[in-house]
């Protein structure tokens, strides 16, 4: 199914941290997980125009339009993020519907400088139709078709979703929060059955660019848990590229402020476990 519009949080024109090479990154609004470690929680939910943010905006860039929807004046907004801080439902009034052609125009402008685009979020697979349309548009455009198309996903999507994306998607970065279903549920609010299935399925199709393991102290970073995860991943694909990421507080919601940041020595220990398991393509950040 085609979708001419997507619900966009923001874009970054140059990113060196969202896949191979320099990339244009599209952050879509809306996520089906509610991770304790989420560093951009304002992308989780859609704005319901409750209006809590209108009054606190110091620039008076927010107001209600005639349909009682909160709208923003882009020329006045300074992106101070106060609206995001006061939002009671992990959303933002700054997200917007964006037309496919408007987005491809922006990509076209930047195209000489990038290896490709990455759709992140939020959770991009929630807008799989739009992502498929975007990737198709790129693959069918003479000038843009050299760009690679990547998805940065939590993996919580069924085969039907991936089957739609696979013909036009070059790779995916998948987060695996925990191998243990209970830990996964505690950290994300959801089970991990679909995530594990996604990892297997994309590896089978050779579209699994990278699996990301975010280590949250006291939650999923015991040597035993990491060793089990490493074995499971190794069974799926011993040549898999693994990125081990230490939890940082940046951007995390206040109710999770007591989670400590990852300890570099402990991270080194966990990296050794992955190396010993046999992963050669390992990145620790």
């Amino acid at each position: 199914m085609k979708a001419a519009q997507g619900h966009l949080n923001d874009v970054i024109r140059f990113s060196a941290v969202d896949g191979p090479g320099n990339r244009f990154v599209v952050f879509l609004q809306g996520c089906n997980f509610n991770c304790i470690a989420c560093h951009n929680p304002y992308t989780i939910n859609d704005c319901d125009s409750c209006g809590v943010c209108v009054e606190p905006c110091p620039e008076m860039a927010l107001w209600f339009d005639g349909h009682h929807r909160v709208v923003v004046d882009d020329d006045v907004c300074t992106q101070c993020d106060i609206c995001i801080q006061v939002c009671p439902r992990d959303s933002t009034p700054l997200s917007q519907m964006i037309r496919l052609d408007s987005l491809t125009r922006q990509i076209d402008e930047v195209s000489p400088f990038i290896s490709g685009i990455t759709v992140s979020g939020g959770e991009p697979t929630l807008q799989a139709d739009f992502v498929t349309s975007l990737f198709s548009a790129i693959k069918c455009d003479g000038k843009l078709s050299r760009l690679t198309t990547f998805v940065d996903s939590n993996g919580h999507a069924g085969r039907d979703v991936w089957d739609r994306l696979l013909p036009v998607m070059d790779g995916a970065m998948i987060d695996l929060k925990a191998l243990d279903p209970d830990t996964h549920r505690e950290m994300t609010g959801s089970g991990n059955e679909l995530v594990l299935e996604t990892i297997r399925y994309l590896a089978e199709w050779d579209r699994l660019y990278e699996v990301r393991l975010l280590m949250v102290p006291g939650k999923n970073d015991s040597p035993e848990a990491v060793a089990a995860t490493a074995r499971w991943l190794y069974d799926v694909d011993p040549a898999m590229r693994v990125k081990l990421i230490g939890f940082r507080q940046h951007g995390v919601r206040p109710q999770f402020a007591d989670i400590p940041e990852a300890d570099p020595d402990h991270m080194a220990e966990l990296a050794d476990i992955l190396r010993t398991t046999g992963f050669a393509d390992l990145l620790v950040v």
Binding site: V17, G21, N22, R23, P112, S115
Partner: peptide
């Protein structure tokens, strides 16, 4: 951060010359 992804710099160099 680009230290971990030097090919991003290659993209920028090529883009700037384009």
């Amino acid at each position: 951060t680009v230290r971990r992804n030097p090919s991003a710099m290659v993209d920028i160099i090529r883009g700037a010359f384009r």
